[in-house]
Amino acid sequence: MSSHAGRVALVTGAGRGIGRAIADSHAAAGAAVAYLDHDRELAETAAREAVAKGWQAVGLSADVADYEAVVEACRKVTDAFGPVDILVNNAGISPKTGADGRRSPAWEMSPEEFRRVLDVNLTGAFNCARAVLPGMKAMGRGRIVNQSSVAGKTFCDIVGVHYAASKAALIGFTKHLAGEVGPFGITVNAVAPGRIDTPLMRGTASEANEAARMATPLRRLGSPEDVAATYLFLTSDSASFVTGQVVDVAGGWLMT
């Protein structure tokens, strides 16, 4: 399949989990993909394995919360493949520093932890968009997709207040940015996954995940590939008139 041939995609948090599946699906569809992750080892391994499959890929290490590092990474992508057409803001953290590996309750959370989650999950998305938008504007096309969560739309007992706030903020970010950049042929959307089986999710107690599975009408947890397929749709011409929207990929969980 070469629905994305000739496109350049930058995927953050692409070293593992959902980000890795999104990056792989775009590379398999013909895009040249920059696998960006804070963890250099993960980014380079993922990109190396992609290249071994005959895909176009490069691994990059940067903390999305660090604007200078993001700009430098984008310069490397542009040097390697040309300007970025597709930005996937997937990098995200959900610290579980309370008792028994649960979220820290708001009344005990450290201000540093709160700030760091906002820095990565929200400001990280701004930093990357800020870095690639001038290029997209100049080309008159572009796709940005932001990783929100059903936890950004409704109370979800598993996550902390910082995470919910950051994911809700990404929805406002998505809607506003879609309005600003639509006239330049750029679409901006968000995806709100439900419970997806990844290393991040396995950080929470298994009873909580079983409860989420039973509350999900499709009676299973999602896979990273389930989410990646929606990203591939949103960045393809199939979604050319879809912008400013949040797509739930949650098996019917919460129907937010």
């Binding site: 809607k175 912008t243 400013g244 019917g252």
Partner: peptide, 28 residues
């Protein structure tokens, strides 16, 4: 039509109970 085909396909196998807007951003 392309959005409906996506929703019917296995690419959307974890999407149910959702509504998808296709409006160019007219209503966000």
């Amino acid at each position: 039509a392309s959005v409906i085909a996506f929703l019917c396909s296995s690419d959307a196998s974890f999407i149910t109970g959702a509504s998808l807007h296709v409006n160019g951003g007219l209503y966000i």
